[in-house]
């Protein structure tokens, strides 16, 4: 069972990295959260029965863990820290404007609530409203309402940033 688990997680670890990148400001926090998500995935693995897609299950566990994550010390977030690892754009896509846009986006996302962060992350990952609703455990209507609010909020926040 462990082999299958390691195989699945290794092949889909991008999901965990993206969740950690959105919810954490520092490398230490990201490492802590990454480890906690791994441990929660391992705990939840025996009850995973292929009824949902692997990615859906991984998003559910990762986002729930990130939302309820307990940070040991309230470190002063170093926003620039974010760019050290997570904000790596593949060389072939590298574009200064894109990187600036991403930094701006991250600064704005950092000001959203835990649930809003998960909705925007899934939206940016091109998930449909139905799948977002399924992953977070809310209705599609709520996702729609929330998405509109988040768009307005982000526009305002990015204007301030």
């Amino acid at each position: 069972m462990k082999e299958a688990f390691l195989n699945i997680v290794t092949n889909n670890q991008g999901i965990i990295h993206k969740v950690c990148g959105v919810y954490c400001d520092t490398i230490e926090d990201r490492e802590d959260l990454f480890q906690e998500i791994l441990s929660q995935l391992w705990r939840s693995f025996p009850s995973f029965r292929n009824e949902s897609k692997i990615s859906t299950w991984m998003y559910q566990v990762s986002l729930n863990t990130a939302i309820t994550h307990f940070k040991k010390n309230k470190r002063r977030p170093d926003r620039n820290d974010f760019s050290k690892n997570f904000l790596q754009i593949a060389d072939e896509h590298y574009d200064e404007t894109v990187e600036d846009q991403l930094k701006l986006l991250h600064k704005a996302i950092a000001k959203l609530t835990g649930i809003e962060k998960s909705i925007i992350l899934l939206y940016l990952e091109d998930k449909k409203y139905e799948e977002i609703a399924d992953i977070i455990g809310i209705t599609q209507n709520y996702v729609r309402v929330k998405m509109n609010r988040i768009k307005g909020k982000l526009k305002k926040l990015m204007g301030e940033v």
Binding site: N85, Q88, A90, Q101, L102, L104, D126, K155
Partner: peptide
């Protein structure tokens, strides 16, 4: 800046980043 523009920027993040 529209969210759709950011979406395309987001898609360029390499999830296969070797450092991670």
């Amino acid at each position: 800046m529209e969210l759709d523009e950011l979406k395309s920027a987001w898609n360029k993040i390499s999830s296969d980043n070797k450092m991670l």
